[in-house]
């Protein structure tokens, strides 16, 4: 591949990222407009209900990103390609961000509607446990001193953590036996068409945002790796092979003048 081609590849990659970013921004604005002005207030909950347009999409994304972490981890162990590890790392970071957002938004919603910030509802509890598991995943990523080991360790955790999700959910669901249908099913019958549209736009916008953030984080990951290898390369160059001819020794005059 020629240098020009590589430059082109990088440019189009950056352009793709920019387009994604713009689409995501447009989607988020559209969600805000739909959610705040176009949709009617909820019959029971009033304007507080509008938080659903960001709460549900961010919850969906948290779960999507952890699924991607799982898939990328399996792919890494199967192929040992470092890009899968970068994808898992990027997706985990974005996932932790969205799951944190989900918890905060959920609390804000819960206070006016249920009168409490937190309830030990199965979905909330599962989400909180997942948040902690993936915070642990990110913490472990900092431990190993070789990229191969980091990739392998995190792949192992990425797989085990995701397999654990259904068990955690099942356990907390049984634990709080008074379970309710997911919020979406619960409110679906009384949703106006514009509400459903707002929700769909929100999910689409957040998915684009996720794709943008992951793409961005992947580029940062590649740059990190390149920075490390560039920082290393002078120390890895053969010592006894000067690339340039040695400079002419300075005249004795100059030396004494400087000294």
């Amino acid at each position: 591949m020629s240098t020009a081609e590589r430059m082109m590849g990088r440019l189009t990659a950056r352009r793709g990222e920019k387009v994604l970013g713009l689409l995501a921004a447009a989607g988020v604005i559209a969600t805000a407009v739909l959610g705040l002005w176009v949709t009617p207030p909820d019959a029971d909950e009033g304007n507080v209900f509008r938080i659903i347009y960001v709460h549900v999409p961010s919850a969906w994304l948290a779960y999507l990103s952890f699924f991607i972490v799982f898939a990328a981890s399996v792919a890494y162990l199967a192929t040992k390609r470092i890009r899968w590890d970068r994808l898992a790392a990027a997706s985990a970071e974005v996932g932790v961000l969205f799951i944190g957002l989900t918890l905060v938004l959920g609390s804000i919603w819960a206070k006016p509607t249920w009168g409490i910030w937190w309830t030990w509802d199965p979905r909330l509890t599962t989400t909180a446990v997942l948040f902690l598991i993936y915070v642990g995943y990110l913490a472990v990523r900092r431990l190993p001193d070789s990229p191969a080991k980091r990739a392998r360790w995190s792949a192992a955790i990425g797989i085990v953590a995701f397999v654990d999700v259904p068990i955690v959910h099942l356990s907390v669901t049984w634990w709080r036996s008074q379970h309710q249908a997911p919020a979406l099913l619960h409110v679906a019958p009384r949703m106006a068409a514009s509400m459903a549209a707002g929700l769909l736009v929100g999910v689409a916008a957040f998915t684009l945002l996720y794709a943008y953030l992951v793409t961005f984080r992947l580029r940062v990951g590649r740059l990190e790796d390149r920075a490390i290898s560039e920082a290393l390369s002078p120390r890895l160059e053969p010592r006894s092979a000067p690339v340039e001819p040695p400079p002419t020794p300075p005249a004795p005059k100059e030396v004494s003048a400087r000294g």
Binding site: T79, K80, R81, I82, P147, A148, A151, D225, S229, S233
Partner: peptide
Amino acid sequence: MIPRTVDAPRT
């Protein structure tokens, strides 16, 4: 130079 693989490939 960024290595594409840093680990043993599957054989």
